[in-house]
Amino acid sequence: MADAAGATTPRAIHPLFVRVTHWVNAFAIFVMVLSGWRIYNASPLFGFEFPPGFTLGGWLAGALAWHFAAMWLLAINGVAYVAYGIVSGHFRRNFLPISLSRALDDVALASRGQLDHAPGRYNAAQRLLYVGVILAAIVAILSGLAIWKPVQLQGLTAVMGGYEAARRVHFFAMAAIVAFLVVHIGLAVMVKGVLAPMFTGRAEVQR
């Protein structure tokens, strides 16, 4: 907390647990997406392939090895983050309430440069996007399990609409996550003073 006199005293805004799980997740998602693109290229679902230079693994076996190694990191880290979010009240405090109309208002304000970014407080658009990408990640994990184990986890595969449908669900969950990342990383780089606190946890108090 900044006291009245020390206007430049850093203020804690991101808890350590959130920062650590965020960066572990960033690494896991990076590996999952790039190795996943190489796996996709082995049997493309749609009329295109991902540029090999933007994939991980070199060939199908290498990509699968990365994918099935990083999945444990993604899953364990994800479970820890969600458990923390629920138990600590992080989700309740920072994600709720979620409102589409308020999110759109904030996007409109931001596009006119009128949205004040209060460090440590998610605006309505952030809330919607963060909850959205968590749901997309859950769908990606469940559809991934359905593809990996269509016999042992056949109930889950059936929920996804069968093996072939699960491949498509998995693809679109990935696409949603990547679309989120384009916006998320773009804003993190463009908006002043939001990237450093994700490492340090502390925001420089402005003015």
Partner: peptide, 27 residues
Amino acid sequence: QGLSLGALSLLSGCTLKDDDAVDRLLF
């Protein structure tokens, strides 16, 4: 045939020579 150079250089900037440990981990 392993890591594509583009992806590898993004990955913590290690070189192809160092990925023996990565291979052992994947194995």
